[in-house]
């Protein structure tokens, strides 16, 4: 595929959303979709300009993003560390894995009432839920990645005199990386989902709060706007990880840009 047709391939993906947007606008203008069900895209855009000017938008996006990323950092790093520990040490796995598998079966959103009792509607509640939500996909996939590293490669590394450190850095970690990325992308989805739910139920700032406030004042355009921004942020995070993946997994046949095909 040439660069030109590649760009065309990427562009064609935007055709459908634009078409849908256009139809939505037309149907709103014709009155097929009434304003109290779904405002027209132009009205949503007007709402966007309004909250942008008032500074509400930037503040709420900032708060939500901070929560998302902090929760991801906390839960992700704990999950990653435990995944590594349990992948590398049988003792560690024997001690913790059964417990973790049991906790995993509790839907983390079911803990919301409990978490509110513990943390109130503080930041702590949101961070806790997000961290808990992202923990498991990252833990499970890190562990899986390490466990499925080709034992023949590990034996090869040993015969060539790699010490434990070299073996980890040059064989085990790179081998587990594709699986870790799968976990990360899965975790991002859970991260936004958890945050939406948590912010909608109890918050005093953030996108979910903005949406709930707007609902109380029947500003349906702002509600729709919040939903769209959630979608956009989710897409942004996913694209970022894809980019990272392409950089880190260049060796992987799935990410190789072949000259032909």
């Amino acid at each position: 595929m040439t660069a030109g047709s590649n760009r065309f391939g990427a562009a064609i993906g935007w055709l459908l959303p634009i078409l849908i947007l256009l139809m939505w606008e037309v149907m709103s203008r014709l009155g097929v979709i009434t304003e109290n069900v779904l405002p027209a895209p132009t009205e949503v855009f007007a709402a966007f300009l309004r909250v942008l000017k008032s500074g509400d938008l930037a503040r709420n996006i900032g708060v939500s993003s901070w929560r998302a990323l902090t929760g991801l950092a906390i839960g992700g790093s704990i999950g990653f560390a435990l995944g590594l520990a349990n992948g590398l040490s049988l003792l560690s796995r024997n001690i913790t894995d059964t417990t973790l598998q049991m906790v995993r079966n509790v839907p983390h959103l079911a803990l919301i009432p409990l978490v509110i009792l513990w943390f109130g509607i503080d930041e702590g509640a949101k961070l806790f839920l997000v961290a808990l939500g992202v923990f498991f996909p990252i833990y499970v996939n890190t562990l899986l990645g390490i466990q499925t590293v080709d034992p023949q490669l590990i034996e090869m590394g040993r015969t060539y005199g790699m010490d434990r450190r070299a073996l980890f850095l040059r064989v085990i970690l790179p081998g587990a990386l594709p699986s870790i990325f799968v976990g990360l992308r899965y975790a991002l989805g859970i991260m936004w989902l958890t945050l939406i739910v948590a912010e909608t139920i109890s918050a005093s700032a953030g996108l979910g709060y903005m949406a709930m406030q707007a609902r109380e004042f029947l500003m349906i355009d702002v509600v729709v706007l919040s939903i769209l921004i959630y979608a956009l942020l989710g897409k942004l995070a996913d694209s970022f990880v894809r980019l990272l993946e392409r950089l880190c997994l260049q060796w992987h046949p799935a990410f190789q840009k072949t000259a032909r095909s």
Partner: peptide, 12 residues
């Protein structure tokens, strides 16, 4: 020792 499989590191 050289094995039946090349056992190269795919990421190197």
């Amino acid at each position: 020792i050289m094995f039946q499989e090349p056992r190269l590191l795919p990421w190197a």
